[in-house]
Design a protein around this nucleic acid. Structure first.
Lengths: 233, 233
DNA sequence: CAGTGGTCTAGACCACAAG
DNA sequence: TTGTGGTCTAGACCACTGG
């Protein structure tokens, strides 16, 4: 209640969050403005601003000029997922990573891929199919299309030694990406690749990336049954 | 190259990002320190700091005192996922939302739930099973355990009218949460609930939340086949 | 119009870690 | 020890938007 001698923005961040969690400031309710809080906490307004801005970014507060700051009605929690190199993913689980290139051809992509990448027809792309292994067992099956126009250097990379996944992460940054997660029953191809029965439930990640509007790659990764993608809120 | 008259931190953010994407500053390479950049851009050091801090938070830069600032080796991209109320999720897809409470009992949870929540045995919890509908069709099957000690008010809520999902989002904030995504084959129960054949691949979300170490709820949500969780990078 | 948050400044001191 | 980022301040002006 009384004036605190907290002086860092972290302290203010913590104290404001406490008041939200303890429902001292309830969802939808206005909280004091920056000047008032600065006085209460005995600090500059910029310090309060920093604390409240972080809380607003995290979804705890809604801030609007003139209107003021209020506690968010639905504290929208955001989970952040890293987009890792599969090799690191495997190694982090304490397993030995293996990689096997199955197919690497330059050909014309199917309509599904063309439309997803918004490419004209007749364009040739690199089609890569590969298997990622953990302790010698199938871990994930990767089916990828790469636009060689966007990353010509990949044509001279040894994709039997380094996975396209890893090569691209290291050598091709992107400005925009779409990612989708879903579940699918293993078809004949996936079943054989992952050594599982047809129909097994597979966790699937589809990702497409662009660099300033130029499509780089579109990939589908099907994980062996039992795979869990985990994170913290 | 020459001094720019950009004066906002957003401009500096944009320009630094451009230099990273154009590989003017390459991964692992040091960039000028804040004072030098402030001079180049003709602004205060605090303004540069703001821009670089945002880029570091986004994973583009690595910053360390004394050492300096360098371009991140593996630009770890983070996908942020909202944790929505299922009703809003359905409505956003343009469908009419429906909800059906299947079971609501107070009983002792199985070991699997107890250990996940780190609860003593003998504790009674609320077990809720429900079906979420979109345009009258099964959308997701929810199997939830709630710790009534953490949220006693839920005992007086009408969980046949409002889903536990929504009630908890509105009334019980949490300080920590685990979330996991996976795929599973529909068992007899899920198959019946979702009106799909046994063995169908289901997208599964498991979420557990705590408030200052006190477990609130643990829920498993199995989505009907075809469900896709989508986001942008 | 006026109140609120958003941003910028010039300067200062501090915390950390590399050499 | 010393150079770097991290933070705080007091003040100022601006941008947006509610009343």
């Amino acid at each position: 209640m009384s004036t605190q001698d907290t002086r860092s923005w972290q302290s203010i961040h913590q104290e404001v969050l406490r008041r939200i969690n303890d429902r001292i400031w309830r969802p939808g309710e206005f909280i004091p403005n920056e000047a008032e809080l600065a006085e209460e906490f005995g600090c500059a307004r910029a310090t309060v601003n920093r604390a409240l801005r972080e809380l607003a970014d995290a979804g705890y507060l809604d801030r609007r000029r003139k209107a003021g700051t209020r506690v968010a009605l639905h504290p929208v929690r955001k989970a952040t997922l890293d987009i890792p190199i599969i090799r690191l993913d495997v190694e982090q689980r304490g397993a030995a990573y293996g990689y096997s290139l199955i197919e690497l051809v330059r050909t014309s992509p199917p309509v599904r891929i063309r439309s997803r990448l918004r490419l004209q027809d007749g364009v040739e792309m690199l089609h890569i199919r590969a298997l990622h292994l953990a302790n010698g067992h199938p871990y994930a099956y990767e089916d990828r299309w790469v636009n060689p126009t966007a990353v010509p250097d990949i044509l001279s990379a040894d994709l039997s030694a380094i996975s396209a996944n890893e090569w691209l992460v290291r050598n091709a940054t992107f400005t925009r990406g779409d990612i989708a997660f879903s579940a699918t029953n293993a078809g004949p191809v996936e079943a054989e690749m992952l050594s599982v029965p047809e129909g097994a439930a597979l966790f699937v990640v589809e990702r497409t990336t662009w660099m300033r509007g130029v499509p780089i790659t579109s990939v589908l990764i099907a994980y062996a049954p039992g795979h869990r993608m985990h994170t913290t809120l």
